[in-house]
């Protein structure tokens, strides 16, 4: 600091600790609740000394919420979205920045337009699309009265109905969320800052486009990729509305959705200890990813916007 302000400095630390406690309070409290038996957790106020039921509550939450299957589903969905988004965006941005072709501008604008539109605003039509991937072709058939045409042509009554459903499948959980332009945009911004000389030198040495991509661009993008892995994994793991719509089969449910089943309802016994244990299990993977990769995550979150 610039000058000596002992009182203010002490106050700073006091309030800082207070702030950290307030931010951490829900989790600390959940952790204590998850370690108590039901008799204690339903006392008002609940005792603040942790009990020794932590493992028991975790086990109950695990079996009651069927968390094993659901965590695997969440993991597949989150990694699918992460890998899908990043690889699609990497090659897309490479194409837009390092090549000149007739449809380049149109491709860029059409991707750019989707930049901030979350799946939440187009749920119904996207759901219809996932329910039948061939829907657009079907409506084309209907509009052009192809049924009639075929009837007439083949003299045979056929009803064309095309159906390819993504409901209750992993691609259905993943693909619609891969369609976002944020990563493409960020990689484009990053590629534009890479010195021209690198590409010139690579070309002079006779490297092909894909060699340049693999040997130079990819290693340079490492930090950005690491940051996006964190951001997209958290994003994918925490998705709510889309998995809620697209999964009806309990075997395909994701963990965040499944937690709904272990929240005590009005006429249940107040098993809040189990609900808290379940919540802690489900929040652990993304929290770990953020904490372990904190350095890249903060850089990736803050830098692109600057």
């Amino acid at each position: 600091m610039v000058e000596k302000t002992p009182i203010l400095d002490t106050l700073t630390y006091v309030f800082l600790v207070l702030g950290i406690l307030i931010v951490g309070f829900p989790i600390i409290y959940a952790l204590i609740a998850a370690s108590l038996p039901i008799e204690d957790v339903s006392k008002v106020p609940m005792p603040l000394i942790p009990g020794d039921y932590l493992l028991a509550n975790f086990t109950t939450a695990w079996t009651k919420g069927n968390l094993g299957t659901q965590l695997i589903n969440s993991f597949i969905m989150a990694s699918g979205i992460t890998i899908g988004k990043i690889s699609v965006s990497l090659i897309g941005a490479f194409s837009i920045v390092y090549f000149d072709y007739r449809l380049r501008k149109i491709a860029f604008i059409s991707v750019f337009c989707t930049l901030m539109l979350p799946v939440e605003v187009r749920i119904l039509p996207t759901y219809e699309m996932a329910a039948n991937l061939l829907g657009p072709i079907q409506s084309l058939v209907n509009v052009m009265h192809l049924n009639w045409l075929i009837d007439w042509f083949a003299n045979y009554d056929i009803d064309i109905s095309l159906n390819l459903s993504l409901l209750d499948t992993y691609p259905g959980l993943i693909l619609p969320l891969v369609a976002s332009a944020t990563c493409t945009f960020l990689f484009r911004q990053f590629f534009l800052t890479i010195p021209e000389e690198l590409c010139e030198a690579a070309k002079m040495d006779g490297a092909s486009a894909m060699t340049f991509f693999r040997k130079i661009l990819l290693p340079l993008s490492k930090t950005n990729i690491a940051a996006l892995v964190v951001i997209e994994f958290v994003y994918g793991w925490n998705q709510y509305l889309w998995p809620l719509l697209i999964t009806t089969n309990p075997k395909m449910m994701t963990a965040v959705i499944g937690l709904q089943n272990i929240i005590p309802q009005a006429d249940d016994l107040p098993f809040w200890n189990v609900a808290m244990a379940g919540s802690l299990i489900v929040m652990l993977p993304p929290v770990l990813v953020v904490l372990l990769m904190q350095r890249w995550f903060v850089k990736g979150l803050v830098d692109p916007e600057k």
């Binding site: 090659i91 194409s95 837009i96 991707v111 989707t114 657009p136």
Partner: peptide
């Protein structure tokens, strides 16, 4: 765009294709 670029008749289209496909099916059509 970069000053120094590659030229290839079909590669750029191939690279942008996945992005265009997901955007078309799950964004523009819906």
């Amino acid at each position: 765009i970069k000053r120094s670029i590659f030229s290839n008749p079909y590669l750029p289209y191939l690279l942008i294709l996945p992005q265009i496909l997901v955007t078309l099916t799950f964004f523009y059509w819906p």
